[in-house]
Design a protein around this nucleic acid. Structure first.
Lengths: 333, 333
DNA sequence: ACACTTTCCACAATCGTTTGCGGAATCGTT
DNA sequence: AACGATTCCGCAAACGATTGTGGAAAGTGT
């Protein structure tokens, strides 16, 4: 890492003071037009690049927001990142993405990194083993704005962006029963995740309300995509549903191939509905409906929420933002 | 952003010099055991977090590597990021992910950000409109190590990590002909992308070599997933292939649903093979083979290549690293 | 008791920029 | 010609941490 040209270098060569060079480069009105020109020319000629660490230190601000998520999987998060990126860039901030890999220790480490770096704000989707928010409170006390999205904990006091999980599940059940299904299977994500339980509860209460007498339902938790496939397969001999609810794209990705592998007429004709970011359902042949859990929209809303909080000097609103998922979208018209 | 406790605060309270505090926190042998203890206690009591900007400025190094990619889509890149993250973290570096959104101007901007931030190295997959590498050369001259992966330009002189595109295509054609296909369709990505053309060329030459007399082939470029679907659909009436080669997951995602939508016996029985990261093919019912273009492996190899270059003081090897894709993997056993 | 290590810590410079303040030159006005 | 207003720029102190050097106190050996 060799020596790079600095403001001092420029100032020495031009015979002016460093402060003048700095002002010239920033188009400060105090500096004469002619001099500004010369400074700029020399700067490009000598490949001058302002040292971001130095200027950030001086201004003690780096215009950076952090995004902490469990993992950048192919499901959901790419959309979220896209939404956040767009909104964040519009407002002149840089985005830093950190992954916790579903590991609380790593999540804490990431928060520490954010504090050390003096980021302006944090958007975080909690990993499944996170149950209390001390590490976030620590960051908040350091003056960092925080917004939680998607995955949270029950008694969260930070601003939150997400969908109404229970309601979404109820809509799904409602649709299935409307289609005439009476034997429902709900497949949910990792049991440690907040949304898994929210959505399961919504599913179960809806089933109890909406299923006709003689109907039945069952709900299972899958640890991941492969486990969803495995559980569905293992369960089929005992419980053969005519309606299946998949709480996420990951579950759906496990379910669909398995479903078509089960050489059973019932399997072919059983209705499936999911909560989805809206990409995956279109890949399958089978008619497939889903509740649109729009990652992009959640991303922009989360970023917007954080930016609002920043403008209000950290005193952000405490009311959760609930994104309305689009009622029901069929992927075949 | 209120005032945070600094090393000076600690030193003032303890009645020692800032340098002593710094050394104590770094477990420097010059500092007495008792004092170290007191410093550390006060530090945690006062929620002291070292200001990363300050220390990075002083040491003029920030242990950060940048990853610049066109876009974080659901295809391929999540795996790549995973591989890179793992390798990079092992070596104590931070990773910064930047997206160019297939926009050269944005790519240049990202490089500039990297220079300003004084990152140690850059891993980049070029966006499709990038044809010359002046912006990368600029960064290289500033002492930043660079590795290009996946998407590159013809006459690249930087270290490169990727697969042998032509060879992969040839293997695909070879498999299709071995299956008895004689009328092949190759569907490729955006025509501006290097890999699109490499893979198409490989496809075409292989077709000419391997197809029996009477055989035929055709290759088309799709701008994106939806366009792949559309083109396949539009083309079907004129050219009805019995073997289809999809050069990427994105293309595959466009092709498969369309294929099953085409109510034609031929469509059901036509063989499909793709180059894939290895997740998507397992989602489909149809028997589907693919050449494993392993994103994770490419990620680790890219990061390793960059780290090697860093250790050798920026004088990195100039020989491209070619990852051998796993020959042919069937997704149903 | 003397010289000689160790042990432990302070001083001050430094990384590269930014910025409040002050001041010299130039200009315009009466 | 005198005087206030512009215009344009330098001085020096920050931002918060790291580090080479120097040196006082304490311990060791003879």
């Amino acid at each position: 890492m060799q020596k790079r040209t600095t403001i001092k270098d420029l100032s020495r060569i031009l015979g002016v003071s460093p402060s003048t060079v700095s002002r010239a480069l920033h188009d400060h009105p105090d500096i004469g037009k002619a001099l500004k020109q010369k400074v700029r020319e020399l700067a490009t000629a000598l490949h001058y690049y302002p040292n971001a660490m130095a200027s950030q230190l001086r201004q003690s601000d780096n215009k950076t927001l952090a995004l902490i998520i469990p993992e950048i999987t192919m499901f959901f998060f790419p959309s979220v990142i896209e939404g956040i990126t767009q909104k964040v860039r519009e407002h002149g901030y840089q985005l830093m993405v950190l992954q916790s890999h579903e590991n609380l220790q790593q999540e804490i480490e990431n928060i520490k990194t954010c504090i050390n770096l003096r980021v302006n704000g944090i958007m975080i989707s909690l990993c499944r083993d996170t149950h209390q928010l001390d590490h976030l409170k620590e960051a908040a006390e350091m003056g960092i704005s925080i917004v939680i999205f998607d995955k949270t904990v029950p008694n969260n006091r930070f601003p939150f962006v997400g969908i109404d999980d229970k309601n979404a599940s109820q809509k799904a059940v409602s649709w299935l029963t409307f289609q005439g299904c009476t034997k429902l299977l709900g497949i949910f994500g990792h049991p440690h995740m907040s949304i898994s339980n929210q959505r399961r509860e919504g599913f179960e209460t809806a089933c109890m309300q909406l299923l006709p007498t003689g109907g039945a339902f069952k709900s299972v938790h899958a640890l991941n995509q492969a486990d969803a496939a495995h559980q569905l397969h293992a369960l089929w001999s005992q419980f053969e549903p005519d309606g299946i609810f998949c709480m996420s794209d990951e579950v759906l990705a496990g379910v669909m191939p398995t479903l078509s592998k089960i050489a059973d007429n019932q399997a072919k004709s059983s209705k499936v509905i999911g909560i989805s970011d809206g990409k995956l359902p279109f890949l399958f042949h089978e008619s497939l409906h889903f509740l649109h859990h729009d990652g992009f929209k959640i991303g922009t809303a989360t970023a917007q929420c954080l930016l609002n909080g920043l403008q209000m000097g950290g005193k952000s609103i405490d009311v959760p933002v609930i994104i309305q998922e689009t009622p029901i979208v069929g992927n075949r018209q």
